[in-house]
Amino acid sequence: MEEIVANFFNAEIATAALPLVASGILNTILLSLMVIPLGLAAGLVLAVLAQSKNPLVRWPLMAWVDFFRAFPPLVLLVLLFAGLPFMGLELGGFACVAVAFMLNNSAYYGEVLRAGIDSVPNGQIEAARSTGLSSTQAMTYVVLPQAVRNVLPDLLSNTLEVVKLTSLGSVVAVPELLFAARQAQSTTFNATPIVMAAVIYYAMLWPLVRLLSRLENRALAGRH
């Protein structure tokens, strides 16, 4: 028992690792604040384009979505980080994470938002257009607010996954929470910093997990 405490819950090591871990938290938050809006924006573009009836638009979009659903985000990240320098293009870890996750998330957010837009009845668009709104205005003020509300659990669920995904930044030396914890662990030969990181992720994300669990159960209730 004592050994477990010394190796996993060592107060002395936790104190020493605190500054490093704290800067890791900050970077994880910054990374999330960068990646979530980028993914949402790219997904929104895809979702709006997917409303097109033109197969020359629809088919490439579907291929794009399937491609990124099939492609592991870490592989995409490593491909950018290790592959692009061979073309004389060195983006750095932070930018690679941004680009890789924007591509990956465009597919996920795109599918969710597309389902949301599809869930708004056509009559709404017709009614909005008949009041004199342009199609862009109808989309922005009438369709999207309802679409987002209809798929809010899925949007939140994806956002939770995106925040968790930022931990992959550690593989390309972005000093986010996991990277900082591993650095502290390898210099102290003690697992306490990684336990710290786990506790911090849990503390940050647990409220969202609970909320989602409720929303998901409510969405399913009374379907039989």
Partner: peptide
């Protein structure tokens, strides 16, 4: 279940691989 949904999988992998040897 909540814990496992909140933790990034990579954190769990790293914790098991680098942490468990000291246990």
């Amino acid at each position: 279940v909540d814990l496992l949904r909140a933790l990034p999988p990579l954190v769990i992998i790293v914790l098991l691989y680098f942490g468990l040897p000291s246990a």
